[in-house]
């Protein structure tokens, strides 16, 4: 009970903190923060799957796509309110996660990585197959709509970016709360046992297969919400949930720290803001377009390799070590 209360206050503090920042920065950064909040949920889904249970998925973006399409279909065809469609979209992704998990539980490392990777690649084909419903290559347009009038009355004029931020924020805070509970729960201990000593875990009576499946489902639910929010920036389509999305989530997860919630936060901030930071740094040097276009990808690849070689536990663990204040669970 104490833990739940503590986690709730952390989530509320997070909400207030980001809300405050969001009020002070300009529209561009508000939009960036909104994306970072969305990807935070996506990176959390990787930290739960890979960090807690050791299963490496290269197709987390595909599960986000399921959430995104689910949300879009509910909003467009069933005229559901966004506030209902976002939480419901996690059911869609959790179901797909269940199906995938049933296969995944039998697979060892590279086989799982391969299957999830091809799943992510097959996603556009599915969108094209069911062109009339899913909108093919173009995709489906959804957005967060207009902010409610009462909010505009309180806060004054609200830019669309700011509204996007306010829509993402409660879900990010909730995700933070649930993930914090997961990371400190009894069942996560079972997951870690499966991750670290699969055969030993089986010997003490843990149902390894069922454990792997349940982690897959939970992780997919997180990805689904992230996907819904990601799509609500304007479009749900194959180009939005490209394979590069899966890879940047993975990058964020490793850079920040695979095994902690703080790591997911740091990681999502890095992947979203890195191009801006690089832009600022190289601004004084007039570099050619071909360099500036590819520099962010180059730097994030470099950071990924350096992190893995020098400090595989990620930035969060590094900070925790420096400050001797550790909420990072091994």
């Amino acid at each position: 009970m104490f833990k739940i209360r503590r986690n709730a206050s952390i989530a509320i503090a997070f909400f207030v903190f980001v809300f405050a920042i969001g009020t002070f920065v300009g529209p561009y950064n508000q939009g960036q923060i909104a994306v970072a909040l969305t990807l935070f949920i996506g990176v959390l889904s990787i930290n739960i799957l890979t960090g807690l249970s050791g299963q490496l998925s290269l197709g987390q973006g595909a599960l986000m796509a399921v959430g995104g399409y689910g949300c879009a279909l509910m909003m467009i065809n069933a005229h559901l309110s966004m506030w209902l469609a976002i939480p419901l979209s996690l059911i869609a992704s959790a179901l797909v996660g269940l199906l995938l998990g049933l296969v995944a539980a039998k697979l060892s490392g590279p086989y799982l990585a391969g299957t999830t990777l091809v799943l992510a690649l097959a996603m556009p084909t599915v969108a094209n197959k069911f062109d009339s419903i899913l909108g093919g290559d173009t995709g489906l347009s959804i957005d967060t709509g207009m902010p409610p009038t009462w909010l505009s009355k309180v806060m004054g004029d609200i830019a669309i970016e700011q509204w996007n931020l306010y829509v993402s924020l409660p879900f990010a805070a909730l995700a933070l709360f649930f993930a914090a509970n997961l990371f400190t729960s009894q069942s996560s201990r079972r997951w870690r046992a499966v991750r670290d000593h699969e055969s030993a875990a089986a010997l003490v009576g843990i149902n390894v297969e069922r454990t792997k499946i349940s982690v897959f489902v939970i992780s997919s639910a997180f990805a689904g919400v992230a996907g819904a929010l990601y799509g609500l920036r304007g479009l749900v389509g194959p180009s939005v949930f490209a394979i590069s999305l899966s890879l940047s989530l993975l990058t964020g997860s490793i850079l920040g720290g695979l095994r902690s919630i703080a790591g997911a936060g740091l990681g999502s901030v890095i992947i979203v803001f890195l191009p801006d930071w690089i832009g600022k740094v190289i601004h004084p040097f007039s570099l050619s377009d071909q360099v500036t276009n590819y520099l962010p990808a180059f730097v994030s690849g470099l950071l990924l390799v350096l992190t893995v070689v020098v400090n595989p536990s990620g930035l969060a663990a590094l900070f925790a070590k420096i400050f001797r204040f550790s909420r990072v669970k091994r």
Partner: peptide
């Protein structure tokens, strides 16, 4: 992080993805 066998196998794969990006 590398003490668990599943991570010991996953981390080099992730490194190779980073190299691909580079």
């Amino acid at each position: 992080i590398l003490s668990s066998p599943s991570m010991r196998d996953a981390i080099p794969v992730i490194a190779s993805l980073g190299i691909l990006g580079i």
